[in-house]
């Protein structure tokens, strides 16, 4: 019965082909540094899942943002765990993505034909930093508020268009309710959507070209 269902689905979806392409593809000789991309993907998914659950109780308004996080941390069952994973996972993701990038650089894996994988990866790194930047404001405590004041001021010193960038980031001249809601929107919709799409492209390129072997003495 199960076999028949599986066969029916496989004929239409092609599980077996997918399995071969995704998990059974040939790999160069193993190296733990090569697992950092998978680790980054895992962390992205973990941040996505814990983030989705945090939105169940979080309220992105100056009146309630801080209180709603206090509520998550102190009153909701396992709220401390979900938020803790999201909080520490965020730092870990920036770290792992960065080390992944360094490994790619040092093993020269960015070279032909993988230049596009590298470029997409660079954008993914910047988007990851963007997630950290927008997520930092959301607790709306003193540290979050002043960190955002300082960080958006950095955008404000760009010659010529600085003041405009500052207002565009903040949604006005001050860090306010508008800043919080636009950071929230960027943090849960825009940046994750861009990340998910580019991760898809990144993975497609990796499957298309296979993983690079480490250069040996002859290279």
């Amino acid at each position: 019965m199960m076999k028949n269902i599986y066969a029916w689905l496989d004929e239409r979806l092609g599980f077996d082909d997918m399995y071969k392409m995704l998990l059974d593809r040939p790999e160069p000789h193993g190296n733990w540094w090569n697992t950092l991309g998978s680790a980054s993907l895992f962390l992205f998914i973990m941040q996505g899942v814990t983030g989705i659950f945090l939105t169940v109780y979080y309220a992105p308004t100056p009146d309630h943002a801080y209180d709603s996080i206090q509520y998550i941390m102190n009153d909701v069952a396992f709220g401390w765990l979900i938020r803790g994973m999201h909080h520490w996972g965020a730092s870990l993701m920036v770290f792992v993505v960065f080390i992944h990038m360094l490994r790619t650089f040092f093993s020269a894996s960015y070279k032909y034909p993988r230049e596009l994988t590298w470029m997409v990866g660079s954008v993914l790194f910047l988007l990851t930093l963007g997630m950290g930047f927008t997520g930092y404001l959301l607790p709306f405590n003193q540290r979050a508020y002043w960190a955002t004041v300082v960080a958006t001021n950095i955008g404000g010193v760009v010659p010529g268009i600085g003041p405009f960038i500052l207002r565009a980031l903040r949604g006005g001249t001050d860090v306010s309710a508008l800043t919080l809601s636009r950071f929230f929107s960027a943090h849960i919709w825009m940046l994750p959507a861009a990340l998910a799409g580019l991760i898809g492209l990144h993975l497609y390129l990796i499957m298309r070209h296979g993983e690079s072997a480490y250069p040996d003495q002859d290279d």
Binding site: F53, V56, D75, V76, A77, F78, G79, L81, I82
Partner: peptide
């Protein structure tokens, strides 16, 4: 288990 508890907590 934590996720389900987290979701249904206010109901309890």
């Amino acid at each position: 288990i934590p996720i389900i508890s987290y979701l249904i907590d206010p109901a309890l």
